[in-house]
């Protein structure tokens, strides 16, 4: 039996490419250790905290629903705030995103300006915006809705613009070649091509805004958040538990509803 030459003289494999994963892992772990040191996170506190956690959470055992109608009204305000904020964001994004899509924008300068505007809106935390609007408008849900709207317009606008950029250039050319102007191009080649994606984004933003609206009360912008803050500060665990349950079930319902809606859309 003659062995093939190759087996007699096994050829050396080309040098193995460097796998940087261990390096990254080590770096990440080192960074984590530094961070834990720097944040002065004491594992003792954590251990006690975890040990006490069972006892602590048992205080929430008996939700006190005596004030339920008021909680539901607060939740209603929260939902309404999220709705208005989302619609506001949608309107702003609708007009800004075609200008912020590289392949549609009438001029590179317009594109840059629109992009920067969207970046700016996204970069300002909605709670900061809410603080500012509360200072200008007074307490209430309206400044909250405005803050949500401005902040999430930045997100929606960016998502829409990126979707519009992904549309096949040929579709735009096909409509542009008929002599359509910019608004017509956007309405006939742009939005119809991304409609389903865009609806998905809007649902996602609505979902996010409901979560956010339920804490905006902390800065005086209406909704259920302030009530929770107050009951927690007064160590009223029964009422806190009831409020948390109301928030929890609302968000779960919305989660399932939007999942269902997404499925029917597809």
């Amino acid at each position: 039996m003659n062995k093939p030459i190759e087996t007699l003289f096994p050829q050396a494999l080309p040098p193995r490419p460097h796998n940087l994963f261990p390096v990254w892992l080590a770096a990440a772990l080192a960074a984590l250790w530094l961070i834990v040191r720097d944040l002065e996170i004491s594992f003792e506190t954590l251990a006690y905290g975890v040990a006490d956690m069972g006892e602590y959470f048992s205080r929430y055992r008996q939700p006190d629903f005596s004030d339920l109608p008021r909680y539901l009204e607060l939740m209603g305000i929260t939902l309404a705030t999220a709705l208005w904020g989302t619609v506001f964001a949608l309107v702003v994004a609708f007009f800004l995103s075609p200008l912020a899509a590289r392949n549609l924008s009438p001029h590179p300068l317009v594109y840059r300006a629109a992009r920067e505007a969207l970046n700016f809106m996204r970069a300002m935390p909605d709670l900061l915006l809410a603080l500012i609007f509360v200072a200008a408008l007074g307490l209430g849900p309206l400044p909250g809705a405005l803050a949500l709207g401005v902040h999430t317009a930045g997100f929606l606008g960016k998502f829409f613009a990126e979707s519009l950029e992904r549309v096949d250039q040929g579709v735009y050319e096909g409509v542009a070649a008929t002599g359509a102007n910019f608004p017509q191009l956007v309405m006939y080649a742009g939005w119809p091509s991304i409609l389903r994606e865009a609806l998905g984004y809007v649902l996602y933003i609505l979902d996010r805004n409901v979560r956010m609206a339920s804490v905006l009360g902390l800065v005086g912008a209406g909704g259920i958040g302030l009530a929770l803050h107050d009951t927690l500060r007064m160590f009223n665990y029964g009422q806190s538990a009831a409020l948390i349950l109301v928030i929890l079930s609302t968000i779960l319902i919305i989660d399932y509803a939007s999942a269902w809606l997404r499925q029917t859309l597809n």
Partner: peptide, 26 residues
């Protein structure tokens, strides 16, 4: 000056009639 493309370049999600109507946009 109308243009006909190799890849058709229609707006897929619009109806045939609406695609034809885009020819009236100008």
């Amino acid at each position: 000056v109308a243009m006909v493309f190799q890849q058709f370049n229609l707006v897929e999600r619009l109806s045939v009639a609406t695609n034809v109507l885009t020819g009236r946009l100008a």
